[in-house]
C-alpha cells in the first residue's frame, strides 16, 4: 500500500498531464470534423479579412469616430471601476473580518461577505449587462453597473486576502497602544495593504477596458459597437481600424500599469 502511494506521489504530475491531454482529446470528439465546418466561401472571407488587415481605412472621418468611441469605452470602464473600487473596499474589509470583535462574529462576517463576493464574480459582466438592460433599459448606467458588480467581486476578494496577509506585528503594536478596531484599520491595515491594492486594481483596469468594449453587444455604445457595425457592413478595413484603436488603448494602459507596479515595488 505504502509502495503504491509512494509511486503515485512520484508520478502524479505525469498522471495529471495525461488526464488533461485525455480531456482535450475527449473534447475534440464533440466537433463534426469535415468540410461542412466551414461556410461556403469561408476561405475567401478569411483571405479578405486577412488582406484588409494591412489596409485599414484611415480617413479622418473614421478616425474621428474611432477616437470618440474609444473615449466612450474608456470612460465607461473608468466609471465602472470607480464603483467597483468602492464596493470592493467596503465588502473587502468586511470579508477580511478585521473589524469584528469576537471570533464568532469574525467567522460570520467572513463567511457571509465572501459568499456575496463569490456570487458577484461568478456571473460574467456581459450577462449582468443583459440583465440590467432588461430591467432598467438602455442607459450607460446598465454598462457601468454591469462592470462594477463582477469587478467589485473580484477586487473585493483580493483586497480581503491582501488585508489578511499584512504582517501582524505593527497591528499588535497599535492594538496594545489602545487603538480601536476602526483606528487599526485606518492606521494599520490599509496603509500597509495600499500598494498591493493599487497594483492589483491597475491590472484589473486593463481587463475592465476590454470588458467595456464587449458591452456594446447588448446595445451600449463604444468601440465594440463600431466594430460590430463595421462587421455587419462587411467593411473589414474599417473593422481593423477600430481594432487597432482598441489595441493601442489596451497597450497604453498595460504600459502605464506596468511602470506603476514597478515603481510601487521599489
Amino acid at each position: 500500500m505504502n509502495k503504491i502511494s509512494h509511486s503515485f506521489d512520484i508520478h502524479k504530475k505525469t498522471i495529471l498531464t495525461l488526464l488533461l491531454i485525455l480531456a482535450f482529446i475527449w473534447s475534440l470528439f464533440s466537433v463534426n470534423w469535415g468540410p461542412e465546418l466551414v461556410h461556403t466561401g469561408g476561405k475567401a472571407t478569411l483571405a479578405q479579412i486577412f488582406e484588409s488587415l494591412f489596409h485599414p481605412q484611415l480617413s479622418s472621418e473614421i478616425i474621428n469616430l474611432a477616437l470618440i468611441a474609444t473615449w466612450r469605452t474608456l470612460s465607461y470602464a473608468v466609471a465602472g471601476m470607480t464603483l467597483a473600487i468602492i464596493i470592493a473596499i467596503l465588502f473587502g474589509v468586511l470579508a477580511s473580518g478585521v473589524l469584528a470583535k469576537s471570533e464568532l462574529s469574525r467567522r460570520f462576517s467572513k463567511g457571509v461577505f465572501r459568499g456575496i463576493l463569490g456570487f458577484m464574480r461568478a456571473i460574467h459582466e456581459l450577462i449582468w449587462a443583459w440583465l440590467f438592460v432588461a430591467s432598467i433599459g438602455l442607459t450607460p448606467y446598465a454598462a457601468i453597473f454591469a462592470l462594477a458588480i463582477p469587478y467589485g467581486g473580484i477586487l473585493g476578494r483580493i483586497f480581503a486576502d491582501i488585508i489578511n496577509d499584512v504582517p501582524k506585528e505593527p497591528i499588535e503594536a497599535l492594538y496594545s497602544a489602545g487603538a480601536s478596531r476602526i483606528q487599526l484599520l485606518f492606521y494599520g491595515y490599509l496603509p500597509m495593504a495600499a500598494s498591493d491594492m493599487i497594483s492589483y486594481t491597475m491590472y484589473r483596469f486593463e481587463c475592465a477596458v476590454r470588458s467595456s468594449t464587449v458591452m456594446s453587444f447588448v446595445g451600449l455604445g463604444g468601440i465594440g459597437f463600431q466594430i460590430q457595425l463595421a462587421l455587419q457592413d462587411l467593411n473589414y478595413n474599417q473593422v481593423w481600424t477600430y481594432m487597432f484603436f482598441l489595441i493601442i488603448l489596451v497597450v497604453l494602459i498595460d504600459l502605464w500599469s506596468n511602470i506603476l507596479r514597478k515603481r510601487l515595488v521599489e
Binding site: 464533440s30 466537433v31 463534426n32 461542412e36 465546418l37 466551414v38 461556410h39 469561408g42 476561405k43 472571407t45 478569411l46 479579412i49 462587421l231
Partner: peptide
C-alpha cells in the same frame, strides 16, 4: 463569418 455556428 468563416465557420458555421457550432462549438468549434
Amino acid at each position: 463569418f468563416i465557420f458555421k455556428p457550432g462549438i468549434f
